[in-house]
Protein backbone atom coordinates (compact mmCIF):
# COMPACT_ATOMS: atom_id res chain seq x y z
CA UNK A 1 0.00 0.00 0.00
CA UNK A 2 2.64 2.47 1.12
CA UNK A 3 4.74 1.48 -1.85
CA UNK A 4 1.98 2.02 -4.37
CA UNK A 5 1.24 5.48 -2.98
CA UNK A 6 4.84 6.54 -3.36
CA UNK A 7 4.94 5.10 -6.88
CA UNK A 8 1.85 7.12 -7.71
CA UNK A 9 3.40 10.25 -6.22
CA UNK A 10 6.49 9.84 -8.35
CA UNK A 11 4.42 9.27 -11.46
CA UNK A 12 2.33 12.34 -10.70
CA UNK A 13 5.36 14.49 -10.08
CA UNK A 14 6.78 13.33 -13.39
CA UNK A 15 3.57 14.10 -15.21
CA UNK A 16 3.42 17.56 -13.63
CA UNK A 17 7.00 18.33 -14.51
CA UNK A 18 6.23 17.38 -18.07
CA UNK A 19 3.10 19.48 -17.98
CA UNK A 20 0.90 16.71 -19.18
CA UNK A 21 -1.62 14.46 -17.57
CA UNK A 22 -1.19 11.59 -19.97
CA UNK A 23 1.14 8.84 -18.93
CA UNK A 24 1.15 7.26 -22.36
CA UNK A 25 4.52 6.61 -23.91
CA UNK A 26 5.15 5.39 -27.44
CA UNK A 27 8.54 3.71 -27.32
CA UNK A 28 9.93 5.20 -30.55
CA UNK A 29 13.62 6.02 -30.96
CA UNK A 30 16.80 4.45 -29.62
CA UNK A 31 18.33 4.71 -26.15
CA UNK A 32 21.20 7.23 -26.14
CA UNK A 33 24.36 5.31 -25.27
CA UNK A 34 26.93 6.86 -22.94
CA UNK A 35 29.37 6.95 -25.87
CA UNK A 36 26.87 8.78 -28.08
CA UNK A 37 26.13 11.28 -25.33
CA UNK A 38 29.83 11.85 -24.62
CA UNK A 39 30.45 12.94 -28.20
CA UNK A 40 27.65 15.52 -28.29
CA UNK A 41 27.58 16.67 -24.67
CA UNK A 42 29.74 19.76 -25.20
CA UNK A 43 27.95 22.27 -23.00
CA UNK A 44 29.69 23.93 -20.08
CA UNK A 45 27.66 25.69 -17.42
CA UNK A 46 28.79 29.30 -17.48
CA UNK A 47 28.07 29.93 -13.83
CA UNK A 48 29.45 26.79 -12.17
CA UNK A 49 31.86 25.54 -14.82
CA UNK A 50 30.18 22.12 -14.73
CA UNK A 51 31.13 20.28 -17.88
CA UNK A 52 34.60 21.84 -18.22
CA UNK A 53 36.82 19.08 -19.63
CA UNK A 54 40.29 17.93 -18.58
CA UNK A 55 43.19 19.86 -20.07
CA UNK A 56 45.00 23.14 -19.55
CA UNK A 57 46.51 26.09 -21.35
CA UNK A 58 48.73 29.10 -20.64
CA UNK A 59 48.46 32.72 -21.77
CA UNK A 60 51.62 32.29 -23.88
CA UNK A 61 50.26 29.21 -25.65
CA UNK A 62 46.99 31.07 -26.12
CA UNK A 63 48.70 34.00 -27.79
CA UNK A 64 50.03 31.66 -30.44
CA UNK A 65 46.61 30.11 -31.07
CA UNK A 66 45.04 33.56 -31.09
CA UNK A 67 47.46 35.07 -33.56
CA UNK A 68 47.06 32.12 -35.93
CA UNK A 69 43.36 31.47 -35.65
CA UNK A 70 41.59 34.55 -34.27
CA UNK A 71 43.45 37.82 -34.79
CA UNK A 72 42.56 38.19 -38.46
CA UNK A 73 38.99 38.97 -37.41
CA UNK A 74 39.21 40.07 -33.79
CA UNK A 75 42.42 42.12 -34.09
CA UNK A 76 45.82 41.51 -32.49
CA UNK A 77 44.70 43.23 -29.29
CA UNK A 78 41.09 42.09 -29.41
CA UNK A 79 40.06 45.44 -30.86
CA UNK A 80 38.06 43.83 -33.68
CA UNK A 81 38.79 44.26 -37.38
CA UNK A 82 36.06 46.12 -39.25
CA UNK A 83 32.73 45.03 -37.83
CA UNK A 84 33.99 41.83 -36.20
CA UNK A 85 33.33 41.69 -32.47
CA UNK A 86 35.65 43.54 -30.10
CA UNK A 87 36.93 41.08 -27.49
CA UNK A 88 38.85 43.34 -25.14
CA UNK A 89 38.49 46.70 -23.45
CA UNK A 90 35.37 48.73 -22.76
CA UNK A 91 35.62 48.39 -19.00
CA UNK A 92 33.93 51.33 -17.34
CA UNK A 93 31.78 52.17 -20.38
CA UNK A 94 28.56 50.40 -19.41
CA UNK A 95 26.92 53.61 -18.27
CA UNK A 96 28.39 55.67 -21.14
CA UNK A 97 26.19 56.91 -23.95
CA UNK A 98 27.85 54.42 -26.27
CA UNK A 99 28.93 51.40 -24.27
CA UNK A 100 31.54 48.93 -25.49
CA UNK A 101 30.39 45.45 -24.50
CA UNK A 102 33.22 42.91 -24.50
CA UNK A 103 34.35 39.79 -22.67
CA UNK A 104 36.14 42.09 -20.22
CA UNK A 105 33.49 44.75 -19.76
CA UNK A 106 30.25 42.81 -20.05
CA UNK A 107 30.49 39.01 -19.82
CA UNK A 108 29.46 37.86 -16.32
CA UNK A 109 31.01 34.36 -16.28
CA UNK A 110 34.39 33.02 -17.47
CA UNK A 111 33.39 29.39 -18.26
CA UNK A 112 30.90 30.76 -20.83
CA UNK A 113 33.93 31.85 -22.83
CA UNK A 114 35.24 28.29 -22.94
CA UNK A 115 31.83 26.97 -23.92
CA UNK A 116 31.38 29.51 -26.71
CA UNK A 117 34.88 29.34 -28.21
CA UNK A 118 34.82 25.56 -28.20
CA UNK A 119 31.44 25.32 -29.94
CA UNK A 120 31.54 28.29 -32.30
CA UNK A 121 35.08 29.59 -32.93
CA UNK A 122 37.13 30.07 -34.97
CA UNK A 123 34.14 31.27 -36.96
CA UNK A 124 35.10 29.56 -40.27
CA UNK A 125 36.13 26.27 -38.61
CA UNK A 126 34.31 25.65 -35.33
CA UNK A 127 35.08 22.62 -33.16
CA UNK A 128 38.57 22.25 -34.61
CA UNK A 129 40.57 23.40 -31.56
CA UNK A 130 41.70 20.88 -28.93
CA UNK A 131 40.48 21.43 -25.38
CA UNK A 132 44.03 22.51 -24.42
CA UNK A 133 43.99 25.10 -27.19
CA UNK A 134 40.61 26.40 -26.06
CA UNK A 135 41.86 26.75 -22.46
CA UNK A 136 44.95 28.56 -23.77
CA UNK A 137 43.11 31.03 -26.00
CA UNK A 138 40.60 31.68 -23.21
CA UNK A 139 43.53 32.44 -20.88
CA UNK A 140 44.94 34.82 -23.50
CA UNK A 141 41.64 36.70 -23.98
CA UNK A 142 41.19 37.02 -20.21
CA UNK A 143 44.74 38.35 -19.99
CA UNK A 144 44.09 40.85 -22.81
CA UNK A 145 41.33 42.15 -20.56
CA UNK A 146 43.62 42.31 -17.50
CA UNK A 147 41.47 39.73 -15.72
CA UNK A 148 44.20 37.09 -15.27
CA UNK A 149 47.99 37.65 -15.08
CA UNK A 150 50.39 36.81 -17.90
CA UNK A 151 51.54 33.66 -16.12
CA UNK A 152 48.02 32.31 -15.61
CA UNK A 153 47.21 28.68 -16.40
CA UNK A 154 43.60 27.88 -17.15
CA UNK A 155 42.04 24.51 -16.43
CA UNK A 156 38.66 23.31 -15.16
CA UNK A 157 39.38 24.52 -11.65
CA UNK A 158 41.13 27.84 -12.26
CA UNK A 159 38.72 28.95 -14.99
CA UNK A 160 35.65 28.31 -12.83
CA UNK A 161 37.30 30.39 -10.08
CA UNK A 162 37.85 33.49 -12.27
CA UNK A 163 35.63 36.33 -11.14
CA UNK A 164 34.61 38.51 -14.07
CA UNK A 165 34.44 42.29 -13.52
CA UNK A 166 30.75 42.47 -14.52
CA UNK A 167 29.79 39.37 -12.54
CA UNK A 168 27.07 41.20 -10.63
CA UNK A 169 25.90 43.29 -13.58
CA UNK A 170 22.90 41.16 -14.55
CA UNK A 171 19.41 41.37 -13.12
CA UNK A 172 17.99 37.94 -13.67
CA UNK A 173 14.28 37.53 -13.47
CA UNK A 174 11.41 36.26 -15.48
CA UNK A 175 10.50 39.63 -16.90
CA UNK A 176 6.90 40.22 -17.71
CA UNK A 177 5.14 43.38 -18.70
CA UNK A 178 4.75 44.09 -14.99
CA UNK A 179 8.45 44.11 -14.31
CA UNK A 180 9.84 45.58 -17.51
CA UNK A 181 10.49 49.28 -17.16
CA UNK A 182 8.47 50.73 -20.03
CA UNK A 183 5.10 50.69 -18.48
CA UNK A 184 3.75 54.17 -18.23
CA UNK A 185 1.48 53.98 -21.23
CA UNK A 186 -2.16 54.90 -21.21
CA UNK A 187 -4.54 54.40 -24.11
CA UNK A 188 -5.64 58.03 -24.44
CA UNK A 189 -8.04 58.50 -27.38
CA UNK A 190 -8.75 62.25 -27.76
CA UNK A 191 -6.58 65.38 -27.51
CA UNK A 192 -3.69 63.37 -26.14
CA UNK A 193 -0.98 65.95 -26.83
CA UNK A 194 -0.57 69.15 -24.89
CA UNK A 195 1.14 71.01 -27.74
CA UNK A 196 1.65 70.60 -31.46
CA UNK A 197 3.16 67.39 -32.82
CA UNK A 198 6.92 67.82 -33.20
CA UNK A 199 9.29 65.68 -35.19
CA UNK A 200 12.12 64.76 -32.86
CA UNK A 201 14.02 62.52 -35.25
CA UNK A 202 13.88 62.68 -39.00
CA UNK A 203 15.85 60.36 -41.18
CA UNK A 204 15.48 62.51 -44.27
CA UNK A 205 16.90 65.57 -42.55
CA UNK A 206 19.92 63.69 -41.26
CA UNK A 207 22.24 64.98 -43.93
CA UNK A 208 20.70 68.36 -44.54
CA UNK A 209 20.60 70.04 -41.17
CA UNK A 210 24.16 71.26 -40.64
CA UNK A 211 23.91 72.06 -36.93
CA UNK A 212 23.17 68.44 -36.05
CA UNK A 213 24.56 66.78 -33.00
CA UNK A 214 27.08 63.97 -33.26
CA UNK A 215 24.39 61.31 -32.93
CA UNK A 216 23.06 62.89 -36.04
CA UNK A 217 19.39 63.26 -35.73
CA UNK A 218 18.12 64.69 -32.49
CA UNK A 219 17.22 68.31 -32.22
CA UNK A 220 15.56 69.28 -35.46
CA UNK A 221 12.13 70.23 -34.24
CA UNK A 222 9.59 70.92 -36.89
CA UNK A 223 6.10 72.14 -36.14
CA UNK A 224 3.35 69.96 -37.46
CA UNK A 225 1.61 72.60 -39.54
CA UNK A 226 4.73 74.33 -40.76
CA UNK A 227 6.77 71.29 -41.67
CA UNK A 228 8.22 71.65 -45.14
CA UNK A 229 6.72 69.53 -47.85
CA UNK A 230 8.10 68.72 -51.25
CA UNK A 231 6.53 69.78 -54.53
CA UNK A 232 3.20 68.09 -55.13
CA UNK A 233 4.32 65.75 -57.88
CA UNK A 234 8.08 65.31 -57.86
CA UNK A 235 9.88 63.12 -55.39
CA UNK A 236 11.85 64.93 -52.77
CA UNK A 237 15.39 63.60 -52.82
CA UNK A 238 16.19 61.71 -49.66
CA UNK A 239 19.68 63.16 -49.60
CA UNK A 240 21.03 66.38 -51.06
CA UNK A 241 23.08 65.90 -54.19
CA UNK A 242 26.82 66.01 -53.69
CA UNK A 243 29.12 66.54 -56.64
CA UNK A 244 32.10 64.33 -57.21
CA UNK A 245 34.29 67.44 -57.40
CA UNK A 246 33.48 68.18 -53.74
CA UNK A 247 34.36 64.62 -52.79
CA UNK A 248 37.59 64.58 -54.75
CA UNK A 249 38.73 67.78 -53.09
CA UNK A 250 38.17 66.37 -49.61
CA UNK A 251 39.91 63.09 -50.38
CA UNK A 252 42.87 64.85 -51.96
CA UNK A 253 43.26 67.05 -48.92
CA UNK A 254 42.52 64.57 -46.13
CA UNK A 255 43.45 61.14 -47.44
CA UNK A 256 45.65 61.15 -50.53
CA UNK A 257 48.67 62.50 -48.67
CA UNK A 258 49.02 58.91 -47.41
CA UNK A 259 46.80 56.95 -49.80
CA UNK A 260 48.60 57.61 -53.06
CA UNK A 261 51.08 55.79 -55.23
CA UNK A 262 53.68 58.23 -53.93
CA UNK A 263 52.54 59.48 -50.53
CA UNK A 264 53.62 62.98 -49.55
CA UNK A 265 53.02 62.43 -45.85
CA UNK A 266 56.41 62.07 -44.10
CA UNK A 267 57.05 58.51 -42.98
CA UNK A 268 54.94 56.88 -45.73
CA UNK A 269 56.79 55.34 -48.65
CA UNK A 270 53.84 53.40 -50.09
CA UNK A 271 50.04 53.58 -49.88
CA UNK A 272 48.99 52.03 -46.54
CA UNK A 273 47.44 48.60 -47.09
CA UNK A 274 47.62 49.28 -50.80
CA UNK A 275 44.63 51.60 -50.58
CA UNK A 276 45.15 54.34 -53.18
CA UNK A 277 42.76 57.27 -53.38
CA UNK A 278 44.52 59.37 -55.97
CA UNK A 279 42.37 59.07 -59.11
CA UNK A 280 38.58 59.43 -59.61
CA UNK A 281 38.32 55.75 -60.62
CA UNK A 282 40.14 54.59 -57.50
CA UNK A 283 38.09 56.83 -55.24
CA UNK A 284 34.80 55.61 -56.69
CA UNK A 285 35.89 51.99 -56.54
CA UNK A 286 36.79 52.41 -52.86
CA UNK A 287 33.54 54.21 -51.93
CA UNK A 288 32.34 51.48 -49.61
CA UNK A 289 35.65 51.34 -47.74
CA UNK A 290 35.81 55.11 -47.55
CA UNK A 291 32.38 55.04 -45.92
CA UNK A 292 33.47 52.40 -43.44
CA UNK A 293 36.68 54.12 -42.47
CA UNK A 294 35.93 57.83 -42.71
CA UNK A 295 32.18 58.05 -42.04
CA UNK A 296 31.22 55.11 -39.84
CA UNK A 297 34.11 53.99 -37.64
CA UNK A 298 35.96 57.26 -38.30
CA UNK A 299 39.22 55.35 -37.89
CA UNK A 300 40.55 57.37 -40.84
CA UNK A 301 42.39 59.65 -41.32
CA UNK A 302 44.62 57.91 -38.82
CA UNK A 303 44.80 60.09 -35.69
CA UNK A 304 42.99 62.65 -37.86
CA UNK A 305 46.39 64.08 -38.72
CA UNK A 306 44.85 65.86 -41.70
CA UNK A 307 42.14 67.52 -39.59
CA UNK A 308 39.09 66.21 -41.34
CA UNK A 309 35.86 67.91 -40.18
CA UNK A 310 32.53 66.30 -39.28
CA UNK A 311 30.89 68.26 -42.08
CA UNK A 312 33.28 66.65 -44.56
CA UNK A 313 32.49 63.20 -43.19
CA UNK A 314 28.77 63.92 -43.57
CA UNK A 315 29.32 65.02 -47.12
CA UNK A 316 31.17 61.80 -47.95
CA UNK A 317 28.33 59.87 -46.31
CA UNK A 318 25.77 61.68 -48.45
CA UNK A 319 27.81 61.01 -51.57
CA UNK A 320 27.91 57.28 -50.80
CA UNK A 321 24.23 57.21 -49.86
CA UNK A 322 23.47 58.80 -53.21
CA UNK A 323 25.21 56.01 -55.07
CA UNK A 324 28.84 57.26 -55.03
CA UNK A 325 28.70 58.63 -58.56
Amino acid sequence: MLKSISVLAVALAGALAAGTATAQTYGFGQPATPAAIAGWNIDVNGLSGAGLPAGRGTVAEGQKVYEERCASCHGVFGEGAGRYPVLAGGQGTLTADRSVQTVGSYWPYAPTLFDYVRRAMPFPAPQTLSDDQVYAVVAFILNLNNIVPANAVMDAKTLAAVKMPNRDGFLTSTWTHDTRPDLHSTACMKNCKSGPVQVISDLVSLHVTPEQTESGNVGSQVEFKEAPAGPATAARPAVPSVTFAQVQKIIAQRCAVCHAQKPTQPGFSAAPMGVMLDTPQRIKAAAKKIGEQAVESQAMPIGNVTNMTQAERKLLGAWIAGGAK
Binding site: N45, G46, Q101, V103, Y109, G169, L171, T174, W175
Partner: peptide
Protein backbone atom coordinates in the same frame (compact mmCIF):
# COMPACT_ATOMS: atom_id res chain seq x y z
CA UNK B 1 20.25 25.61 -13.60
CA UNK B 2 20.34 27.80 -16.69
CA UNK B 3 23.52 27.32 -18.72
CA UNK B 4 24.37 31.03 -18.98
CA UNK B 5 25.41 30.61 -22.61
CA UNK B 6 26.96 33.41 -24.61
CA UNK B 7 23.57 33.97 -26.29
CA UNK B 8 21.91 34.72 -22.95
CA UNK B 9 24.70 36.79 -21.37
CA UNK B 10 26.81 38.62 -23.95
CA UNK B 11 23.84 38.80 -26.34
CA UNK B 12 20.05 38.94 -25.98
CA UNK B 13 20.39 40.86 -22.72
CA UNK B 14 19.59 44.53 -22.25
CA UNK B 15 22.00 47.04 -20.85
CA UNK B 16 20.07 49.75 -19.02
CA UNK B 17 21.11 53.35 -18.37
CA UNK B 18 22.38 52.50 -14.86
CA UNK B 19 24.88 49.98 -16.26
CA UNK B 20 22.89 46.93 -15.14
CA UNK B 21 21.59 44.48 -17.69
CA UNK B 22 18.29 42.63 -17.83
CA UNK B 23 18.64 38.92 -18.51
CA UNK B 24 16.06 36.37 -19.64
CA UNK B 25 13.73 38.95 -21.15
CA UNK B 26 12.14 36.28 -23.28
Amino acid sequence: EPWETREETSKYTELMADGKALQFTW
